Simulated scan of single mutants.
Amino acid sequence: MGTAIGATRLLFIGLLLAATTVDAKRGDEDVGLSLADTTTHADFQAQRAAIDEALAEPEQYSEMSRSSRSSLQASLDAIAARLEASGSLAAMSDAERDALAADAEDVNEMLETARHDSRIVCTREATMGSNRTRRVCLTVAQRRRQSEGAQRLRED
């Protein structure tokens, strides 16, 4: 009987660790462009595919506007055209590399901002006329819009 309890505990701990690992990995995927001197057009296309896949997920980039998405795609198209014309980053002139680095920085900044704004934050708020609280979950961007709207009302 002692070994059965020990085995059950061990199984429970194993399941708990597995669940914790899965939960920790969820939403931690950090996509962006990483351009090295050896980056080729094919390397870039693989990174772009990962970005497009992440953008297709409804939650991680939910607060990215259509204009930001089109601007992001335009920057990715420009990088792809430059890399396709030269073959690799190493074959480019210094001016072309600088322009490509600036485009890549813009892409990474847009992705980081959109991911940050799409993060969901939950708080417990008191219900009017009651001692009970309720859980309210909003994205960072939604909270910012509410705050700005309240500030505008106060100023008027």
Rank of each mutant, 00 (worst) to 15 (best):
T39M: 08
S75D: 14
L89V: 15
S65A: 10
A54L: 03
L72M: 06
L35P: 09
T39A: 12
L55P: 08
G32K: 04
A42W: 03
Q73S: 13
M64F: 05
Q45F: 00
E84N: 06
E57G: 13
A42S: 14
L89Q: 11
L33P: 09
A49R: 11
E59F: 05
D37Q: 08
T39P: 11
A81M: 06
R48F: 00
S88T: 10
R66V: 05
A54F: 00
A50E: 15
D43S: 15
S71Y: 01
M64P: 08
E84P: 00
R26E: 15
A74W: 00
L89C: 06
S70V: 01
A36G: 04
Q60D: 12
E53W: 01
S68L: 00
S34Q: 14
S71K: 05
D37A: 08
S70W: 00
E29K: 13
S68N: 04
R48Y: 00
Q60C: 00
A56E: 13
V31M: 09
F44D: 02
L72I: 00
R82D: 15
D30L: 14
L83R: 01
S65R: 09
A36K: 11
V31L: 10
A24F: 12
Q47D: 06
D28M: 11
T38K: 11
A85W: 00
A81R: 05
G27L: 09
S71R: 06
L83P: 03
L35T: 07
A80T: 08
D43K: 03
S34W: 07
R48Q: 13
I79N: 08
L72F: 02
G87E: 08
